[in-house]
């Protein structure tokens, strides 16, 4: 599904890369965890596979097409969905409008379908009494679930999450990871989670550790 070929990235100069010569494959219907200490470059790696930045070396392929061929904006619109640690919801909207907006922008199959959006929110524990409330009135866990719902309502095949449980308590963390697992297994999507928490990573199908500029497969 998503192939990483000889991927390299550096900030200052090529002599000091963050990582280099990375070759990985992420498949549909599976969840992946990328572990690593702070500063190892795991978030930078996520920004590359999310289409938020361009690699300095190598290529990322979606199926047979390189992202630079697809175009990053196009790729972000149709093929990838991102969950951020800080949720990054539209604060002036309700959970419902957050989903409807995402569906409209990504030109999702169910764009404009309130019932579909409501079903997804309900499935993630956002009850009818919350769907039209301003997102700022929701708890952190609820907001993160709305952020996950936003990725689910779009038709993206790749879902990347940057420390999605960083601001959540234990119960919410479990619930959110379980939700990601369901997305991967039931909706046949490729879920890639960047985390520094081994407990979270342990729940994913595969684990990679980014260390010394290289990825090591743990499971």
């Amino acid at each position: 599904m998503l192939k990483i070929q000889d991927l390299g990235y550096w900030y200052q100069d090529e002599a000091h890369p963050l990582f280099q010569g990375i070759n990985l494959t992420f498949e549909s219907g599976k969840s992946y965890a990328i572990l690593g200490h702070s500063g190892t470059g795991k978030t930078t790696f996520l920004s590359l596979i999310a289409g938020l930045d361009k690699p300095k070396a190598g290529e990322i392929l979606l199926g047979d097409h390189a992202l630079k061929q697809i175009g990053l904006t196009n790729y972000r619109r149709h093929d990838v969905a991102i969950v951020f640690q800080a949720y990054n919801l539209f604060t002036y909207m309700s959970p419902m409008n957050n989903l409807l907006t995402a569906m409209a922008i990504t030109e999702a199959e169910h764009a404009g379908d309130r019932a579909y959006a409501k079903q997804i929110l309900n499935d993630l524990g956002i009850g009818d009494n919350l769907v039209d409330r301003n997102v700022q009135q929701l708890s952190g866990g609820q907001q993160q679930r709305v952020a996950i719902a936003r990725t689910m309502c779009c038709d993206a095949q790749v879902i990347v999450a940057d420390e999605p449980t960083g601001n959540l308590d234990e119960d919410n963390t479990k619930a959110v990871i379980a939700q990601f697992q369901r997305i991967a297994h039931e909706q046949n999507k490729c879920v890639i989670i960047v985390t520094h928490e081994p407990d979270v990573a342990a729940q994913c199908d595969h684990q990679y550790r980014l260390e010394n500029k290289q990825f090591t497969k743990l499971t």
Binding site: R77, N88, F90, I105, T106, C154
Partner: peptide, 13 residues
């Protein structure tokens, strides 16, 4: 800028 960033991450022109 966060809102703009999210819109861009969703692929908005």
């Amino acid at each position: 800028r966060f809102e703009i960033g999210v819109l861009l991450s969703l692929g908005e022109a």
